[in-house]
Design a protein around this nucleic acid. Structure first.
Length: 962
DNA sequence: ACCGCCGGGTGCC
DNA sequence: ACCGCCGGGTGCC
């Protein structure tokens, strides 16, 4: 009755159902259906070339901005220009004004630009023979649906848009505006990259970036831990990045000028150097240690950081320090050092210890800080003016339509001050700015305590470093105090909370800013990202094990933070790198690769130096342990399974599988829960159609959304293809970012869900529910506690292990926190001391639990109950050498990540992982899908829109196929 | 700008 | 003198 549900329009009834192997052809039909639906979405990248035309830039003599032959120029609407509300300003790469578009053309363009019908980009291909005007080639780009309107409008004003390239209109893989590629296009053919090539190239973007030619550098004496060879290499590279005067990528010296070969921009001043870069080593290779070594080894002029040396390793001072650090860890704000303590310390004369006076002398020498102080408020203002400025602050301020009369002036100030800044920077090439002293480390809360631990662990015990934890409500907000520290550590949250509220962190001229787990600032709209961009620093570093998560787009934020000219301005990044790469342009990809190579060092666990692995981790073995259900459990399971078949069978009959896929997930979820323990099953999600009241419907939708998110299948929004921000759920139970879906709805008269094409309305969107209340132990009835086959399998293992080695520690991991709760009972019964770590715990609690677990004391806990999603990367649980994965996850990477929490640097034992899989169940199918997903991840290149959609669709397909 | 345009001065040739 | 012509002033938007 139900078994043929995949086979639309087929006569032969085959036994294909959710719970056995899916048929490929049936799945194909489904995926095609979804693909067809998805292809109706507007193309988010809107990269169709409508045509080009030759225009004139006039008024050159009034402005100082210059352009070279072939240089790209920016076009900025100036609706508040007192002479012409249609004015379009022309700027060079630095944002300096070059001139205006001639008024007749500007009048025609204004309409197009103001209504977002097209993006207009300009390139000055040929020079001028006078100092008053010059020709410019304008390209109009946008989404197909606007093409006609734009072409007609321009024509009505007497401007004909030519599809240049002699009839080769729409040639794929062309990149417009990038002079290099246009040139090669004209010369012959630029063969666009195939998706496969692109994928490979992109995957390798961060590979092979070892800079061993830089040699190795020893850390300063104050670093106690000897560096491994690859860490010495990293240190050497980082010091070189900070100290050496190397031109940024694509800049070269041509006579007296500095020339950028990509944008064809040139300037008299040396481009602002990027002092810093991206340290993208794999997790566990010691990015933290290397960074600590950098801080201590490379102060001004390549000398080590001057530190106080105390009498002896066991001096009472150190003990006091320690206790204070612990105190601080708990959120207090007292500094490690205090004036009183220094009396206990006596400096040991040492060669590499610079007298503190050296530093004090030059402290307030440059006037730089004051001049920067002045323009600071100007720069920051635009961000306060509301959500209009969605992109890069500076760029938006300079290029977006001004909304008030005062804006154009502000823009100018910004640009000028920016320029001034770069001039100042070039001056400081010769005379280093010694006023900056402190390094600011910004990290996610979850690794904050790790930094403190690591400083403690890697510093020589007689070295006194001023570390201040800028966290907690009692934090000291004094700028003088903060800037006098050696190191200030804070979190992204604190930074963005402070931002815009007289943030002391933003008023300090930092020697160095380090972003730990820097990939988390990839969303340029986030307040956090804005806060990070506004930090003032001489040197900037990004630490990240996964510098790009999804696509080229993720990189922009990193480059913007590093202030890599000119790509810190979004437009130039888009034009020169992002669009060419997405369109498959070889030159664009080459440029991207060069760019990344210049500023990144990345080694993986598998990298080898001179034929030897960088780090040798203990062996890791993964076992799958099959669990047989007891007859009674099997009976219950089969009952639920059949119920699920019926429901899904009905959807198939109605042709509504896609619209109800949240329900499909819910059914799978129930089965997965049965596999673990019968008590995990919560309220059964009823069909939406049976909801009586709107409130009830709302409640159900929220439940569904929780399910969808909990199932781990829907981490991204199908509209923006990015991770979901401000999640909302539609009545058809698909989750999107609120702004994304709102836009979809407003752009069509009768809006349809991009995933299932059912009708949607703004008024029917339901907000993401507040985080689920943690079920406490009460919800799992402990009086009537019963075991399950899986529980028994685990307990059998634990007991055996304990009898072999009492000190062995285990991680017991489940996606269901309720399962963790269930497991507490037998653990207690058998006298295991255990701790529990899940997503609901406060950071303070977490730190405490991790410390407890990591302790080697005899009475320390031997088992940690860990919720799969708790914590995140960076968690250090090396005390455990056994991992029990109680239930399979959709995403194998999540499991890997979890295993890596103990299989990482610092692990001394071999790691044994046991995955429990219930035989003949949904879990077995999930394992198959995991494998398939792995292949998909390897095959699907995650950059172009279509490919991204395909991979996401395959994902859904895989989910449904079970 | 070695242009175009504007507007004032000028006015047979 | 309601034009043409001349030559100086001027010049983005």
């Amino acid at each position: 009755m139900f078994s043929h549900w995949w086979k639309f329009g087929r006569d032969r009834i085959t036994d294909v159902d959710l719970f056995s192997d899916g048929s490929e052809s049936a799945a194909e039909t489904l995926s095609q259906a979804i693909r067809a639906a998805a292809s109706q979405e507007p193309d988010a990248d809107g990269g169709v070339l409508f045509g080009q035309l030759r225009g004139t830039v006039v008024g050159l003599r009034y402005y100082t901005g210059v352009v070279n032959r072939g240089e790209m120029v920016g076009l900025v609407r100036e609706p508040h220009n007192p002479y012409d509300k249609n004015a379009v300003m022309v700027t060079n790469v630095l944002g300096r004004q070059v001139g205006h578009i001639r008024k007749e053309l500007a009048a025609a363009m204004a309409h197009v630009m103001d209504n977002d019908l097209a993006k207009v980009e300009g390139v000055v291909y040929s020079g001028t023979n006078n100092s008053f005007s010059m020709p410019v080639t304008l390209s109009f780009l946008g989404s197909e649906e606007n093409k006609d309107a734009v072409v007609k409008h321009m024509a009505s004003r007497g401007f004909r848009l030519d599809a240049d390239g002699g009839g080769a209109a729409g040639a794929k893989g062309r990149s417009f505006g990038s002079p290099g590629s246009s040139f090669s296009f004209k010369k012959g053919m630029t063969i666009p990259l195939t998706a496969e090539e692109l994928k490979n190239a992109f995957d390798n973007l961060f590979e092979g970036l070892m800079q061993s030619k830089d040699g190795e550098k020893e850390a300063a004496e104050s670093v106690a831990t000897p560096l491994l060879p690859h860490q010495k290499q990293a240190l050497s590279w980082m010091c070189a990045r900070e100290n050496k005067d190397v031109l940024p990528p694509f800049w070269e010296k041509r006579g007296d000028l500095y020339y950028n070969s990509l944008t064809c921009f040139s300037a008299k001043e040396i481009p602002e150097r990027v002092r810093g870069g991206i340290l993208a080593d794999d997790m566990g290779l010691g990015k933290t240690l290397t960074t600590i070594a950098l801080i201590l080894t490379n102060f001004h002029q390549g000398k080590p950081l001057p530190v106080e040396i105390c009498d002896g390793p066991f001096s009472p001072t150190k003990a006091k320090n320690k206790s204070q650090e612990c105190f601080k860890l708990q959120g207090s704000s007292s500094a490690v050092n205090s004036a009183g303590e220094s009396s206990h310390c006596s400096a040991i004369p040492k060669e590499d210890v610079i007298d503190a006076a050296d530093v004090v002398l030059v402290e307030d020498e440059p006037q730089k800080s004051t001049s920067k102080e002045k323009h600071k408020p100007t720069k920051r203002k635009p961000s306060k003016e509301g959500p209009v400025l969605l992109e890069d602050l500076d760029f938006a301020a300079a290029l977006s339509c001004a909304t008030s009369e005062t804006r154009p002036k502000k823009k100018k100030t910004t640009k000028e001050s920016k320029l001034k800044q770069s001039v100042e920077m070039s001056v400081s090439e010769s005379t280093e700015d010694f006023s900056a002293k402190a390094t600011l480390i910004v990290c996610p809360l979850s690794v904050l305590s790790n930094w403190l631990d690591q400083f403690e662990q890697h510093l020589r015990s007689n070295v006194k470093l001023n570390i201040y934890l800028y966290y907690g409500s009692e934090r000291n907000r004094s700028k003088t105090f903060l800037s006098s520290q050696d190191v200030v550590i804070t979190t992204y949250n604190v930074l963005s909370t402070d931002f815009g509220n007289k943030s002391p962190l933003h008023g300090i001229n930092w020697l160095r800013v380090v972003l730990d787990e820097g990939h988390i600032i990839r969303n340029p709209n986030a307040q956090m990202s804005k806060a990070v961009l506004e930090l003032r620093a001489q040197r900037r570093w990004i630490l990240s094990g996964t510098p790009i998560q999804n696509s080229v787009k993720d990189l922009w934020m990193l480059l913007a933070f590093l202030r890599l000219k000119p790509f810190d301005v979004r437009e130039w990044w888009n034009r020169v790198i992002q669009r060419p790469v997405i369109q498959g342009d070889r030159a664009g990809l080459q440029n991207l690769q060069n760019l990344v190579k210049c500023i990144t060092l990345r080694r993986t666990k598998n990298s080898e130096v001179n034929g030897r692995r960088l780090v040798s981790l203990p062996k890791k073995t993964v076992y799958v342990e099959q669990v047989e259900l007891s007859p009674r459990e099997r009976e219950e399971y089969e009952l639920a399974r059949n119920e699920g078949r019926l429901t899904i069978g009905r959807y198939v009959a109605e042709g509504s599988v896609l619209r109800n896929y949240a329900d499909v997930l819910a059914i799978l979820m129930r089965l997965r829960q049965y596999c673990c323990h019968p008590d995990l099953i919560g309220k059964i999600a009823t069909d939406l159609a049976t909801a009586d009241t709107p409130a009830e419907l709302r409640q159900r939708l929220m439940e569904k959304m929780r399910l969808v998110l909990a199932s781990g299948s829907d981490e991204e929004c199908s509209v923006c293809l990015d991770s979901i921000r401000m999640p909302v759920i539609t009545h058809c139970a698909h989750v999107y970012c609120r702004p994304c879906i709102a836009q979809v709805i407003s752009s069509e008269q009768k809006a349809r869900c991009p995933l299932c094409r059912s009708e949607i309305k703004t008024s029917e969107l339901v907000e993401f529910p507040p985080p689920e209340e943690m079920e406490d132990e009460k919800s799992v009835n402990s009086d009537r506690w019963r075991a399950s086959s899986k529980v028994q399998a685990l307990m059998g293992n634990l007991l055996r292990l304990r009898s072999e080695d009492v000190n062995i520690k285990c991680l017991v991991v489940s996606q269901f926190t309720r399962f963790l709760t269930v497991l507490q009972t037998p653990l207690r019964e058998h006298g295991f001391s255990f701790v529990r770590l899940d997503g609901t715990m406060s950071q303070k609690k977490r730190t405490q639990i991790i410390q407890e677990f990591q302790s080697s004391a005899a009475d320390s806990p031997k088992v940690m109950l860990l919720s799969l999603k708790a914590g995140g990367v960076g968690l250090n649980l090396t005390a455990a050498s056994r991992v029990f994965l109680m239930d399979p996850a959709w995403n194998p990477a999540t499991e890997e990540q979890c295993i890596d929490r103990c299989h990482r640097l610092g692990q001394e034992r071999n790691v044994v992982v046991t995955k429990f899989i219930v035989k003949d169940s949904v879990e077995e199918n999930m394992v198959k899908i995991q494998k398939k997903k792995q292949d998909l991840v390897e095959k699907a290149f995650g950059s172009t829109n279509t490919d991204r959609k395909t991979s996401r669709i395959d994902d859904i397909r895989a989910l449904l196929e079970v």
